[in-house]
């Protein structure tokens, strides 16, 4: 763990809370000014010198505060470009795959996109699209003639998946907090909803799902810190994303259920979390995508081999 994580998180928590509800135009200059971009750039190269666990912690807070900006994408692309010795200018986002909608594509000066298994820095023109909550997810026509190959081995789908897992960890914790606060105040049948066992059991299960994603996010970050993006962390990111998708299904439904109608209104902040999560389930690989990859990997290892490989990866 980076020694500076605590201070970093306090700063991020305060800033993201201030930026809640702010659109990209209002939020981005503040985020740039705060200097998050260089989080994963080594200190020797003028960066913050953080690790993937730091990124996980920051993205968890971004998810909790429904931050409407491509912060994680920007931190990862800055890291990749720095590692390749390529000078970055402006906002660079990342495409999960060539045909996939690109997060905040219209705001990006350039995009990191994989072609034939290799990362490239490429420009393009954006056709606007939106996620359920209204964030840009744009269809890009790439200008491959001016593409610059990058000597960095990573699967962009996995990188996006990692960001969404961390954001989900925070969003579920945020939804849990809203549920607890609301049910502790709302009185029906002469007592707060939180005193009804049926409601307690639902909120407990929401907490369990939130806990699962928090642990999955940490496990994926640990794998990235051990072996970097690529083969050494693919299984962990895959498992974490698939688990996060399951948790969104259960957790969002429970959060809405215990809130009743108020949680379904535009004015109440729950939808800022749940509508984002609904979109994240299909970004960075859906259930089928990752379950096939994990399943084939496990079959390749065999029953005992699965256990041997999982344990070996955390023993080092």
């Amino acid at each position: 763990m980076s020694e500076n994580r605590k201070a970093l998180c306090e700063m991020a928590d305060g800033l993201f809370a201030d930026l809640r509800g702010a659109d990209f135009a209002a939020a981005w200059p503040k985020l740039e000014e705060a200097g998050f971009g260089s989080l994963l750039v080594p200190e020797a190269d003028g960066g913050f010198g953080g690790d993937w666990g730091d990124l996980a912690a920051i993205m968890r807070l971004a998810g909790m505060h429904a931050l409407a900006a491509p912060l994680g994408e920007h931190i990862i692309t800055t890291h990749v470009l720095s590692a390749c010795g390529v000078e970055a200018s402006g906002l660079v986002t990342i495409a999960p795959s060539q045909g996939a909608p690109v997060p905040w594509g219209r705001h990006a000066d350039q995009i990191i996109c994989a072609r034939e298994g290799e990362l490239h820095l490429v420009s393009g023109s954006a056709e606007h699209g939106e996620s359920p909550v209204g964030e840009p997810r744009d269809s890009i026509t790439y200008d491959w003639n001016a593409a610059k190959p990058l000597a960095y081995s990573a699967d962009p789908i996995a990188l996006i998946a990692f960001l969404r897992v961390c954001q989900t960890a925070g969003a579920l914790d945020g939804a849990l907090k809203l549920a607890i606060d609301y049910c502790s105040q709302r009185v029906q049948f002469g007592k707060p909803l939180s005193k009804f066992q049926a409601v307690q059991q639902s909120i407990a299960l929401l907490a369990v799902e939130a806990a699962a994603v928090n642990c999955a996010a940490q496990g994926a970050a640990d794998a990235l810190d051990r072996g970097g993006p690529g083969h050494a962390s693919e299984l962990e990111i895959a498992a974490a994303k698939l688990r996060a998708n399951i948790a969104i299904k259960t957790g969002s439904a429970l959060a809405h259920q215990v809130h009743g109608a108020i949680g379904f209104t535009r004015d109440y902040p729950l939808h800022e979390l749940t509508r984002r999560m609904m979109g994240w389930r299909s970004e960075g690989g859906n259930d089928t995508y990752w379950s096939q990859i994990i399943g084939m990997q496990a079959i390749g290892w065999g029953g005992a081999g699965l256990w041997h490989n999982l344990t070996q990866r955390t023993d080092s």
Binding site: A238, Q292, G295, A298, I299
Partner: peptide, 9 residues
């Protein structure tokens, strides 16, 4: 394969 993947996750 998908069931194995889910269970492993």
């Amino acid at each position: 394969v998908a069931t194995i993947g889910r269970l492993v996750a």
